[in-house]
Write a protein that binds this DNA or RNA. Structure first.
Length: 181
DNA sequence: GTGGGGATTTACT
DNA sequence: GTAAATCCCCACA
């Protein structure tokens, strides 16, 4: 399935990892074939090799010296496309989730890509994980919004961010912070 | 071997 | 609003 079709299908999907279940509310599509914003744009490397592999696997990367972000690889093998999981609502394993982010309100537990990985207990060791057992798609939604991607320097204007309209757990970093130059 | 930058979060003023 | 935290990866020499 092409990444731009698959991304909205992940909304409202159930993702279980590390004893916590999340209902996904916000994702972003990355298409390495012709996408300057993707890690895969400059070809296959040791870090992004999972994106070049078969669909349905977890691509985990470490950034800013302290955060992990996770993606679902997508499309036919070799296409290097992936979908970043940006936010979700904790629907099971709330006690575990709270213990991983002690000073957070329930609503903010997985509100952002770094936070999402934290509450699920995802780190580099989960890179390449097969998601067959842990990701359950829901029915296609009507209430889906799209808009520009967040936090990228390049090609941030492509409307490849998808979220569930009006959902309170969607991250509010809508207006990208201007980068100093 | 080295250097610049990053798909972010948090705290502080 | 702005700044600091913090380290791995990749490109280049």
């Amino acid at each position: 399935m092409p990444v731009l079709e698959a991304a909205p299908r992940l909304l409202d999907a159930m993702f279980t990892h590390g004893g916590v279940t999340l209902r996904l509310t916000e994702v972003e599509a990355y298409d390495g074939a012709d996408d300057p914003g993707s890690h895969a744009h400059r070809g296959r490397t040791e870090r992004n090799k999972v994106m070049f592999g078969p669909p349905g696997h977890l691509y985990v990367y470490f950034t800013y010296g302290m955060h992990h972000c996770c993606n679902v690889s997508c499309g036919p093998e070799g296409s290097a496309s992936a979908i970043l999981l940006r936010a979700g609502e904790v629907v099971d394993g709330l006690d575990v989730a709270r213990s991983r982010r002690p000073n957070s309100s329930d609503r903010d537990l997985a509100r952002g890509p770094g936070r999402l990985c934290k509450v699920l207990g995802i780190d580099s060791g989960d890179d390449g994980l097969d998601l067959r057992e842990s990701l359950r798609l829901g029915r296609p939604l009507d209430e889906v919004s799209t808009g520009p991607r967040v936090g990228l320097r390049l090609a941030a204007d492509r409307p490849w961010r998808f979220w569930i309209t009006s959902d309170p757990t969607v991250s509010r970093y809508v207006s990208a912070k201007p980068r100093t130059r």
